[in-house]
Design a protein around this nucleic acid. Structure first.
Lengths: 112, 112
DNA sequence: ATCATGTTTCAAGAGTAGTTGAATCATTGA
DNA sequence: TCAATGATTCAACTACTCTTGAAACATGAT
């Protein structure tokens, strides 16, 4: 009953489950397709460069961001599809087994 | 630049970042307002009762589920608002800083 | 070439999370 | 009251994650 997709999604969630990594992903999500360089990401974050690099690697391994060298800099971008897949896996089947809707914000938004 | 809300959301994500807990939450989300008892949750999961209890406690502490004794059983329910707040915190500001939209599935769905 | 900047890699240590088995608590029915 | 079922608590151990400091690599400018 624990599906392989749960195992995978759990790993992806673990990658998000750190203040620095979450802040990074959120900023990349806000930034949209252009993304941001490692330096831009680290600048307001009060984290040493090696620590930031560690976290960026985690996010990359989890498939949540991509990286690409641009001359001296390395540019990171959010992988939007992966993020939206994750969200969908989490709440996509909201109250589908229930007669009662779960509320006005329900992602399934099947209102009478 | 790491906001307190990031710290909190990271903890909530950590609570979701385990296959058993994710499977539990997903089933509670599907189940809707009626929820499920601990026994119902554990039955298809191949986890010992004490381990399940440990995970349910984690989810409760994280504010993702509520529990309520009903006679012999204990019934768990998803806290939908918390979950949706979390999702919103993650992707709610999608590509707001960018000229280019991030894609057709963008939560902000501002299409020309 | 050399140096400065941006970024990653490596090794070591501290702290935290997850599993297990045994014991305990709560409720129901005989 | 006693036994059975549902669920939680406790203690101990293993494994993993995160941080740190030092070193290394890549690029661009002098």
């Amino acid at each position: 009953m624990i599906e392989p997709t749960d195992e995978l999604a759990a790993k992806t969630l673990a990658a998000l489950a750190h203040p620095v990594r979450l802040a990074v992903v959120r900023r990349l999500v806000e930034a949209g397709p252009p993304g941001l360089t490692a330096g831009q990401l680290g600048e307001p974050l009060d984290v040493s460069p090696n620590t930031l690099s560690f976290h960026l690697q985690k996010l990359t391994q989890a498939g949540l961001v991509t990286s690409r060298r641009e001359g001296q800099y390395i540019r990171y971008r959010a992988r939007f599809d992966e993020l939206l897949d994750l969200v969908d896996h989490l709440v996509g089947a909201c109250c589908s087994e229930s007669r009662d809707a779960c509320g006005p914000r329900c992602p399934a938004s099947r209102r009478p």
